[in-house]
Structure formats: structure tokens, C-alpha cells
Nucleic acid binder design. Sequence first.
DNA 1: CTAATAAATGAATGGCATTCATTTAGTGCT
DNA 2: AGCACTAAATGAATGCCATTCATTTATTAG
Lengths: 253, 253
Amino acid sequence: MLETTRERPVMPAVPAVQGRSAGAAAGNGDAAGTGTSRRRAGRPSAALLDKAGITTAALELINRKGYDGLTMAGLAKELDVAPSALYNHVASKRDVLLLVEDHLTSLVDVSDFSAAPWEDAVRSWAWSYRNVFAEHTPLIPVIAVLPVTDAPQTLAMYETVSKGFLDAGFPQERIVSSIVALESFIFGSAYDVTAPEDIFDSGSMAESTPHFTAAVRSASSGRALVRPADVAFELGLEALISGLGALRAAKKQ
Amino acid sequence: MLETTRERPVMPAVPAVQGRSAGAAAGNGDAAGTGTSRRRAGRPSAALLDKAGITTAALELINRKGYDGLTMAGLAKELDVAPSALYNHVASKRDVLLLVEDHLTSLVDVSDFSAAPWEDAVRSWAWSYRNVFAEHTPLIPVIAVLPVTDAPQTLAMYETVSKGFLDAGFPQERIVSSIVALESFIFGSAYDVTAPEDIFDSGSMAESTPHFTAAVRSASSGRALVRPADVAFELGLEALISGLGALRAAKKQ
DNA sequence: CTAATAAATGAATGGCATTCATTTAGTGCT
DNA sequence: AGCACTAAATGAATGCCATTCATTTATTAG
């Protein structure tokens, strides 16, 4: 129907930047916030926002200012838009965190599950998972309660990992519990990475806690090469791998 | 100036309740908030606030309204005081959370470390620790970064646990790492307890994630008697206990 | 006695997420 | 073609929240 509909009438000049991969302010006249020449109210010809753009802008903001700097107002400014405009695309700030979480999950390395032995696959997956979220601990409370339905990339990760466990000979009814146990350890360990160096310094109460103080001292004797958090993570992970590995039946061909 | 200063002019009746163990509003004329007869400005004869009172009021408020309900204004009302009065005793809301954290840590059961075998002691400690903080997950980000100096009860717990590990024949330089690994698992698992029942419901994407969906289904077949979070915790904890236990030298007499 | 300090009130302050009325532009239906 | 509906933007509230500051009153130290 309709003849000349596809003519693309005028389009002032701007090539209608879409998807807005990264980098702020798409060249042209800016709007709410930066200072010059507000955009006038009303729906613009080409949409300024979408979930992908919001996600990358949020990540950019987090990298630059940390999670304290991630505010709806700041995000809006990053996107050169009024804060209320965001609410046409997300229902709440938690929604933004969800978008970020799902994106980050896609960065977790699950590749070894299709090639390497189960132990090696779990090892590389767990290290990768921990390292990604160690930089994003404020997301952990969100993830922990997040129904997987709302996070397609997260669901995809679970699928790959589940299949890896099944192929390795795990009894089906133990797979979810095993993954949950590993994940719990991973999330807890991610926090650990962010702890200050001197977190175990007992200070003035050192005399009243001799055993602990001695243990802390001897733990840090051969340090500085590896972070304490890495030592603890390796220790716990290897314990989990060998403990959980014992559940396997000898399958896999 | 002014003669009759030491006469103790009136003192309406009240015996100057101090410490304020629990239960709100110490009987007499109330103040900021509740509605009737404000207390007049200026330092009162007997202090209305102290850290112990703030801690128990905070816990009361958390139990009643959850962590969202824990606001400085709400806490002040609970204590029948103006919000700004709190800042004479704590420097920030984070300080309040610290007080609560340290109190809760004193509830963790470490008794088995002086009696039972190492495995049993770790088991009961870990379950108790997880159960206490499962109800208080918003504290976990605080704990994880908390220098132990600021938390005497927490330090006391570490001392007991360290001694238990040492007595069980653990090499001193592995003790802290082992405890940290266990704690990481415990904190992560505490979150897990709060997750909704249907967290793993893959919903509309079930067809694209067959292995995971099947694993979830078979995990929940014999359920309802035990919570899934408990199964995962037990599995991981036993794996950690046997994995870490292998580090011990045969000592202990 | 007097200066310093401690502990309260009450009135800001500034930041925050979120909502709502309004404006403008595209879409679908007849 | 026209018209109702919906989508996507602005801009101006709203209400909550932690925190600060000036002020008042009482206790304590010198």
C-alpha cells in the first residue's frame, strides 16, 4: 500500500546513528544537560535510546566512576537525554543492573566445556566467572535473586555448564546443586578480591588473639607475588573440584 | 554568675533510665516524632543514646521492617530521638551496620572447636554462620571489606576458629586461606537461601536450554522436604571439608 | 568559676529514583 | 486520507534519605 512511503522525506543531515555502540553524544546538537541547545520536547524522528545503548552507556559510566557514579541522572547525561526518558525503556534502576549483569555473564569463558576434561573446564570457567564479577560486586546481590528467565545470556551459560557436567558423567539430579555450590563460592570469592590488603590486621587487639595473629603473619610471609585472595580461591576451588568430582560415574565414552 | 545552680531544680520524676536494653520509648514524656510533648533542645541529664542501644534498636527495626526499613530517621524514631542525635555516637549509617554485624557474629556457634573433631567443628560453625547471615545478606558487602580491627566479636571468632585449625594439625601458613575459602562459600551460600523458589525456571526459553531444564527438573523431583539451598550448601561444604582436611598433618596428640 | 566538651534539637542541604503532565512523531485501521 | 493509538522524548514536580550545621543545655576538667 501507499506509494511514496519509502522515500525518506528530508532527514536534516544526521545519518540517524542507531544502536549507539559506544562513546557518548552522537555528534549533533546535544540536549538535556551538557549545556547548549536543548532538544525540544516530543518524540524524536529516530529513537535516541534502546536497551543495548543503555547497557553500554551504563558499563562506560561504571568503568569511569564506579557503581556509586551509576545514577539514573548520570546515565541520562551520558546518553544525552533527560532522566525520565530512560523509563520508557527500563522500569527501574534494577532493570539497568540486570542488563549489565546479563552482558557481563556473556563474557564468562565457558569454552573449555566443549573440549577439555571436566576438571579443567570447571577450573577455567570458575576463574573467569570470579574475575569478571570481582570488578562488579555490587551486582552480586542482584544476580543471587535473579530469576534466570530475565537474563538470556545467563541462562545460556547455565545450559553450557549443565551439558558439561552431564557429559562428564554427573548424575542429573546433582548437577544443579553442584553448580549452585560452585557459584556460591565464586560470588563470595569475588567480594574477597575487593578486600583491602590489611583486612586481617588485628591492630591493638593482637595480644588477645595470638593464634589468629600468628596465622595471619605466616600466611603473608611468602606473599606479594600472588594476591591472598587468589591463594584462597585456588585452595577452595581445587577442594570443590575434587570433592564434587567424586560424584561422577565413570562415563564420557 | 547565678547562685542556685547545683540545686537540681526539678527533675520531674523519671529515674534516668540508662543503657536502654530493649523495648522502645523509656516511659516518660516522648520526643521527636511520636507526636506529644517534644523534648526541649540541649543536652539531657542522662544520655539517651549509646552504641549498645543503637545496635539493639537497629536489630529490632531490621526484624520488623527489613533492611529497606532501616533508615537513620527510622532508627531515630525507634529511639525516640532526633535523627541528628545519632551522629554524636556513630559517624555514618555504615557504622550502624558495623555494630549490627559485630553483634550478629557473636551469635555464630564456635563451641565445637573446643570439643569435637575438626570436621564436626567446621560443619557446625559453617552451618551456623550461614544461617545467621542468610537473614542479613545486606551486611555481606559490608563484612567482606571490613577490617577486623573494627569488629571485636568478629576478631574473637577468627581467633577461636584459627586455634581449632591449628590444633587439628593445619600448617600455619594455610590456615587463613582455608578460613577465607570457607567464608567465601558461606557468604555466597547465604545469598542463595534468599533466592526465590522458581529462580531456575527457564520459562519460555526452555526449549533452547534442554540440558539445564532437565537438570532443574530432576533436581526438584524429591524436594519440598529440604530446601534446594540446603542441599547445595551441604554438598559444597562436605566437598570443602574433605578437600581442605587433606592439608592437615596427622597431629592432634 | 570558667572553659571545654558532650549530647541533644531543629532546620537546612543536596542527591537520589521515580512519576506525571505535556509535546511530538510514527503506526495501524477503516 | 484521516484518525485514534501508541511510542518516545522533555521538564517539572515529589518524597525520601543521609548528612551537616547552628544552637541550646548539661556535665566535666583545670
